[in-house]
Design a binder for these strands. Structure first.
Lengths: 188, 188
DNA sequence: AAAACAATCGACTGATTAGTCAGTTTTACC
DNA sequence: GGTAAAACTGACTAATCAGTCGATTGTTTT
């Protein structure tokens, strides 16, 4: 692993446990086994390091999630696959999840940063499709997207809190049904 | 306003904008118009100040929300009232919302802190009631509670992003229906 | 093989900041 | 009105930390 990647891995782990401000750059370098100076060779400031890590994580989560979706899947299947992939990726990478949560709720975060990501566009299109087909509630596609994102977070938090449920596929399906019922029209 | 309260108000505003670590204690004191020393007279450390503020905010949110619920209300009415009160309180106090989000996603936060609050107990009882009456899905009451909390957050974020929807009661009702559908059994 | 360039090191620094403290003013009480 | 406690002040400090820099090593190019 090159030193740039090594630094990002070490930083992520330390940030997840101690927070951005609880983690001196010197400590990141030390625990990565490299010199202090090289960190600032790759990342001119600490903030650049943090932003780079965030975008990198989002990218990998996006690539993983979308790669799971089959062509020809129904809308519900696609949403389910995306939801499950996101949930499981976050469960398998708890440091990443903690880091992203912390970042998204810090003053460094802006929605502009988010919009630059392709996956938002793709998710919004999927939401719009559901609305047009009268499967989803008649609300803005951005709301559908934000609700699903929120339900992924809720699911991850819950599954982490009650570890015994993490391998329970039936339980995960119930979690997904809650998310699905929130955005879909109900058949009365 | 006594200086202790004054400090908490100033701190909250600065924390919301600049974050905990981006806000020196000296600046809090200065903007509150008091001496540096008095801050540490009331709060022995910065962390004590942060924790005290968090518990204070949660208390006030709890008192406000529960005071809105009428006796004799149906379960759905009670949940709706609690949801709406929480959403509107957060909209009217954006600094508080930002501060709480930041705190809850920081390494200083622990669930133990949360459990010490009476309102969690009360909310869990309401959730259990809905489960027992077969109105809610057959899932743990803690999950119902976490889902509702998550849906409050989603609603607040969305309403803040699209300010023109903030006065739209009909739209808020639609937001609540999404939350309600997530936790309730659907009538097929 | 020489020159140019990139990667790497780690000691150093200037600025910042949480928390202290010795002394002053205000309040509470007898 | 005397006194003890509490509130309050602001200059000070010890420690910390982001970022610098000059020196060194490794790699590519011509």
């Amino acid at each position: 692993m090159d030193k740039r990647t090594l630094l990002m891995h070490t930083a992520k782990r330390l940030f997840a446990v101690n927070g951005f401000y609880g983690t001196p750059t010197a400590r990141i370098a030390k625990e990565a086994g490299v010199s202090n100076g090289i960190l600032f060779h790759y990342f001119p400031t600490k903030e650049v390091l943090i932003n780079a890590m965030y975008l990198d994580l989002k990218d990998r989560l996006f690539v993983y999630s979308t790669s799971q979706v089959y062509k020809g899947a129904t809308l519900k299947e696609s949403i389910y696959t995306l939801w499950l992939a996101a949930v499981e990726w976050n469960l398998e990478n708890p440091d990443d999840f903690d880091f992203m949560q912390q970042f998204e709720n810090s003053p460094y975060y802006s929605l502009e940063l988010e919009k630059s990501h392709g996956y938002v566009q793709m998710s919004l299109e999927l939401a719009q499709k559901g609305i047009d087909e009268d499967i989803f509630k008649q609300v803005p596609s951005t709301l559908v997207f934000q609700t699903m994102s929120g339900m992924v977070e809720t699911a991850v938090r819950y599954l982490r809190l009650f570890k015994e449920t993490q391998e329970d596929t039936e339980f995960k399906n119930r979690l997904f049904e809650m998310a699905w019922d929130a955005i879909s029209k109900n058949k009365i």
